[in-house]
Design a protein around this nucleic acid. Structure first.
Lengths: 343, 343
DNA sequence: TATTCACACGCAAACGTTTTCGTAAGGTTA
DNA sequence: TAACCTTACGAAAACGTTTGCGTGTGAATA
């Protein structure tokens, strides 16, 4: 089992100094052509690769971006990662992904671990627990130590840094508008509890759309779901005997579940009730009926976040002091689950 | 913007040597209680965290596991990652995830990058292109340099290392058996081209089940799909006017698409045709009808893979020389898409 | 008073790299 | 032949840790 070969070993074998080997591999004119060739041939033969760790230590740079997301098993987040990777690889950066599993503690541990040498900067979507706890010391600490952070999707308003978000309220308004223009008046919303920032914003957008259309809002049409894993019974109970002609769900799972529940209640989507979701994931695309939804353009978010971060990492101080918030446009993807109401 | 604080800085501030600081923080008896307390207080105040890079360089260990998967936007792989993370974090390891995007080149680049200092060992599922190309030099190189590799799911028989797989053929046989016991005789299979190892194995399992039941195999019932992204038209064409009473799909997407297509052709799943899939993902669970499928227990695969790797990393040489192949049991998850045939 | 010893701490090497600067050998010029 | 220049290379520092060993100080012992 051949061990990794180092400059020192090459130097010893060839009976030259370490610095000569290093320079030869870099094609320095300081070294004679003859020696250069000899060294390079040897290095190639032994498959020499510079040790990144040593380089990181020397350069005080790891050329690595840390990404921390609440859940790894989540289509939206993985599309974002795809975007980050794309940009990162182009620019010669590596990407480390960690999941916080929506736990505050794990988010702190992961961030501190990566911050102590493994990554130059971070792209982060905060855990549910963190939003609830409102404890952001770890993020602020990281930034105060000179490591830039870009927040995306589940962001924190109080933290001053680069951010990439969608206009959740606007997206929700677009969705609700779509239902309204289809002729729906009794529009229910399936949303999350308020401490989830995006849930709250989407609820706001829904309400805004109703007001703009002079449709009276009705508390009875709003369901705030806490336990996502057991949403089915809750949604079923909520929709039972409720006379609605449309449902706006703030995520894919709620949309699918609503459609399923409505079917069980003997209602046909989209003929009796239109359903619109949020997030353009696998489910929306392949469900029957396929779901009209609001696309968040996850990959684009990743791309923009990575660009912001790399700008900070490579920029001079003038760039460093200025923070941007990029708002990605959402778009309405019309599919089969919504339909104009027959009058 | 406070920079990261180092031992050197603490030493300077407190007017002691670096080694004193290091030892004090480690509660060494060599250092007086007084100094220890002073140093620790100072370190806490300035939020000192040892630099992982320096530690990695010194210890020749990164305490990091590299995971390379073909696609990040893929439910099965993310569940595996979940399992890996669980074990890794318990044992004090960090996890770096990279995706090869099914590209051979990117797989090589990622592996070499991580191998040159960023990770101690690897958990890897090879890219499609790699399976096609049959070029495994990068993996063998990595192992020959002393870094253990655990292959999972899409493995390579020729490489001698730890492996975690499911018995794909057996799983497929179970699936097909299920259909046969339901009374189906005309069972179509939607599979992949043969160079995808798991596709081929599943096809074999299907054939084996048929033989065991003395059902003649029929080439016309086998569809090998190359272009997964455009499988719908292919499947539609294939199933059109075909008199089948069951479909076995080797992945979730094929199963869903088949169900959709059958519906368009006026057939009802499961009444007219039973459909069974492979991989227990989001789609299978939430589709209507929900899909009977074979679960691969992704998280369990991740757990086992991580354990194998860490055993190698921490074991003495006796462990190092012995390679295991763990076969995870698949299980049949019965849902709504399959149904006993009425006679 | 001379020797020994525990205590508390510092020195220096090592990990693998890059890079600045110094310098020996040989050749060229005056 | 002396002064200088070029070529080709080596020494050493630096990045931040850990750790074995050396050592100065003061006190206890003989």
């Amino acid at each position: 089992m051949r061990q990794k070969v180092t400059l020192k070993q090459i130097a010893k074998e060839l009976d030259v100094s370490i610095s000569t080997v290093s320079k030869a591999l870099k094609d320095s004119v300081e070294i004679s052509l003859d020696t250069r060739q000899k060294v390079k041939a040897f290095a190639k033969l032994y498959n020499y690769k510079p040790n990144n760790i040593a380089l990181s230590l020397k350069n005080k740079k790891t050329k690595t971006i840390g990404v921390i997301i609440p859940e790894i098993v989540h289509h939206f987040f993985t599309t974002v990662i795809g975007g980050v990777e794309k940009v990162a690889n182009e620019k010669g950066y590596n990407v480390i992904i960690c999941s916080s599993n929506n736990s505050f503690d794990k988010e702190v541990i992961n961030l501190e671990m990566l911050a102590s040498g493994s990554a130059d900067g971070f792209i982060l979507s905060v855990a549910k627990e963190t939003q609830l706890k409102k404890d952001y010391h770890h993020i602020e600490e990281t930034m105060s130590q000179g490591m830039p952070v870009v927040l995306f999707d589940r962001i924190i308003d109080e933290i001053v840094c680069d951010k990439v978000i969608i206009d959740d309220a606007k997206g929700a308004q677009t969705a609700t508008n779509h239902l309204l223009t289809l002729g729906c008046k009794k529009i229910a919303i399936l949303t999350t509890v308020d401490y989830i920032s995006v849930g709250k914003l989407r609820t706001n957008g829904y309400l805004r759309a109703l007001r703009a259309y002079d449709v009276p809002e009705n508390e009875g049409y709003i369901l705030k779901i806490e336990d996502i894993d057991n949403c089915e019974s809750e949604i079923s109970e909520f929709l039972k005997d409720k006379d609605v002609d449309a449902v706006f769900a703030v995520n894919e799972l709620f949309a699918v579940t609503a459609t399923k529940v409505l079917k069980e209640h003997g209602k046909i989507v989209p003929d009796d009730v239109s359903v619109i979701g949020f997030t353009d994931g696998i489910l929306s695309k392949h469900f029957i009926p396929s779901l009209t939804t609001i696309s968040q353009h996850g990959e684009e978010m990743g791309v923009r976040a990575a660009k912001l971060l790399i700008d900070k990492l490579e920029g001079d101080d003038s760039v460093t002091e200025e923070y941007k918030t990029v708002i990605i446009d959402t778009s309405l993807i019309q599919r089969q689950s919504t339909k104009k109401k027959e009058v």
